[in-house]
Design a binder for these strands. Structure first.
Lengths: 273, 273
DNA sequence: CGCTATGTTGAGGGAGATCAAAGACTGTGG
DNA sequence: CCACAGTCTTTGATCTCCCTCAACATAGCG
C-alpha cells in the first residue's frame, strides 16, 4: 500500500502557526518509542502508510484547537508543553490538564465530534495530529492498537477522576504538592531529573488547574521554601528532599499520564509479525 | 455459535448479594434500547452469543465492586442507582459520579486492569456486567460497537472534565444548581418528569460530589426553597419554574451521561444486516 | 532602557467549614 | 400499633482558609 497524502482536513486553519514540513519520517523523531504515529509507522515499515497524521508547530500562547471546533484527530506532543482549558459562558476558565512530550490528548472530542476544551501552547511546541477515523479503522485490524486506544482513554478518565478528588477533598497545599509530585514523575518519565525542573506554566495556570488563585500558589510555594522542602526561583523548582516531601503529602498519585511508553509501541510493532 | 456459559470470573464473590437468574433473555429486559447487552444480543439474534454478561443485584448500601479489585467487566445499570467514590489514604472520600438506569460505568478500570473507584448501590439495584475481553473482541469484528465503546468512554471523560470545571470554578450554589439540572435532564432521558423527582442520594453524597459539606447543601436547598425556585421535602424535589432556574444558573451542562440511547443500539443492530 | 506581563507579599473580608443540637424519617422488635 | 434506636436532615453560632484588592518587585522583550 502506498503512503497516502496528508488530507487537508487535518490542517487547522485558525492560526498563523506554520504546519511544519510534512512527510518527515517518524523514524527520525526523537520521541521514537513514546509516540502514537511512531508506533504506527513501525508497524507498517514505512513513514505514514494507512495512518494520516500531520505535524504542527505552535509558539507560546498560540492555540492548537478551540472548544467547539470539529474533532478530527488526537494529538501527540513531540516537544514543548500545552494546557487544555474549559470555559464557562461568563468567561471563567478552568485548566483541565497540562500536556508534556510523549503524551496524547484530545480524546474528549470523540463523543460529540467537537472539541470540549481549548488547547494552548505554553511554550514553543511540536505536535503530531493523528487522524481519528483512520486510527479507528486501523484499530479494527490490529487488536493491540485498539487495546492501546482504550488504555489511553481510560488513563485520561482515571486522571480526571483523580483531579476530582484533588479539587473536591484536598487543601490548597495538598493540591499544589500533588501537582509538583506529578510534574516530577512526568519529568522523570521523560528521562529528566525528578528533583529539578522548570515549570512550564504560569502561577495563574497552576492556580486555575488547582482551583485556587495565583496568589495562593505563590504563598504556598514561599511556604514550601520557608520549610526547606524545596527551592523555587520563579519557574525553576528543585526538591531538597523529594522522599520527605512525598511522605508529607503522601496522597498517592495513582494514575499515569496518557503516554504510550516503549512497551506499548513495541507491542504494536509485534502485531504484524 | 452456541451461547457460552457465564464464566465464573464475572461473578463477584465479595458480598452476599445474590446473582439473579442467569440466562434471562435480554429481549425481555425493560431497558431494551438503552442497554449494552440488549444492543449486543439484538445483533446476534439470541440471548448471549459471543458476549459474556451476568446480572447482579445489590441492596441499598451494598457494594458492586471495590477500588483495587481486578477489572473484568463494564456495568450497565438496569434499575436503581449507584455512586462511585474515590478514597484518599487517610479515609477522605470523594463521590466521583452517580449512575442511573441505562448508563454504563466502569471504564476507568481499563487502563490499570483494576478498578479505580468503589461503586455502591444507593438503593436496590440491578446491573448487567458485560465482560470486557469479549466486548473488545466483538468490537474488532463490528466497527459500530467499537465506535460506541469509544463514544461511551469519551462521554465519561467529557463528564469528568466538566466536573473539574464545576469543582474548580463555580460557587457552591452554582454547583448544586448544576447537579439538580443534570439530574432533571437524566430523569427526563429515562422518560420521567424533569420537574419532579426523588434524589437517590443523601445530602452527604451530594456534598461530597460537589466538594462541599452536607450542611452547606442543606442551607442551599433551603435557600432555593425560600427563593420560590423549588419545593424540597427531604428527598423529593420539584422545580417550580425549571426554565427560570436554568436561566439563573445558566452554566450550560454540555455533556451527556454515558448511556447508549436507542439510536446507538439500533445502529449496532444494523451492523449485521 | 522603558513597557508590559508575571510573580510576590501584605491586609482585610467573606464563603463555606466546623461544631453543636434539635428535629424528622426508617426500620426493628415488642 | 407503638416505642426505640439509629441515621439523616436542618438550623444556628463561630471560626478559618482562602479570596480579593492593592502595592511593589522582577523578568522578558521590543
Amino acid at each position: 500500500m502506498q503512503p497516502l497524502p496528508i488530507t487537508r482536513s487535518l490542517e487547522h486553519t485558525h492560526s498563523a502557526a506554520a504546519v511544519s514540513t510534512l512527510g518527515t519520517a517518524c523514524c527520525s523523531c526523537q520521541l521514537s518509542l513514546a509516540c502514537v504515529p511512531c508506533g504506527l509507522s513501525r508497524i507498517n515499515q514505512q513513514p505514514h502508510p494507512v495512518m494520516l497524521f500531520s505535524r504542527h508547530r505552535r509558539l507560546a500562547g498560540e492555540i492548537l484547537y478551540r472548544k467547539g471546533e470539529p474533532f478530527h484527530a488526537v494529538h501527540a506532543v513531540r516537544s514543548g508543553a500545552l494546557k487544555s482549558a474549559m470555559t464557562l459562558a461568563d468567561g471563567r476558565t478552568q485548566v483541565a490538564g497540562f500536556h508534556m512530550p510523549g503524551e496524547v490528548l484530545g480524546f474528549d472530542g470523540v463523543a460529540s465530534g467537537r472539541h470540549q476544551c481549548t488547547v494552548t501552547a505554553l511554550e514553543d511546541t511540536q505536535t503530531c495530529a493523528v487522524a481519528y477515523e483512520p486510527l479507528l479503522a486501523l484499530a479494527t485490524r490490529l487488536p493491540l492498537v485498539q487495546r492501546d486506544l482504550h488504555r489511553l482513554m481510560s488513563l485520561e478518565l482515571a486522571r480526571a477522576q483523580w483531579q476530582m478528588l484533588l479539587l473536591g477533598s484536598m487543601s490548597a497545599a495538598e493540591r499544589l504538592a500533588a501537582l509538583l509530585l506529578d510534574l516530577s514523575r512526568r519529568a522523570a518519565a521523560r528521562g529528566h531529573s525528578p528533583t529539578e525542573f522548570n515549570l512550564r506554566m504560569s502561577r495563574c495556570d497552576i492556580g486555575s488547574y488547582l482551583g485556587v488563585t495565583a496568589e495562593t500558589v505563590c504563598r504556598l510555594l514561599s511556604g514550601f521554601k520557608a520549610s526547606n522542602l524545596l527551592e523555587v526561583d520563579t519557574r525553576r523548582v528543585r526538591f531538597l528532599d523529594l522522599p520527605a516531601f512525598a511522605r508529607i503529602y503522601s496522597a498517592t498519585v495513582n494514575w499515569r499520564p496518557s503516554r504510550l511508553h516503549g512497551e506499548a509501541s513495541a507491542r504494536w510493532g509485534q502485531a504484524l509479525e
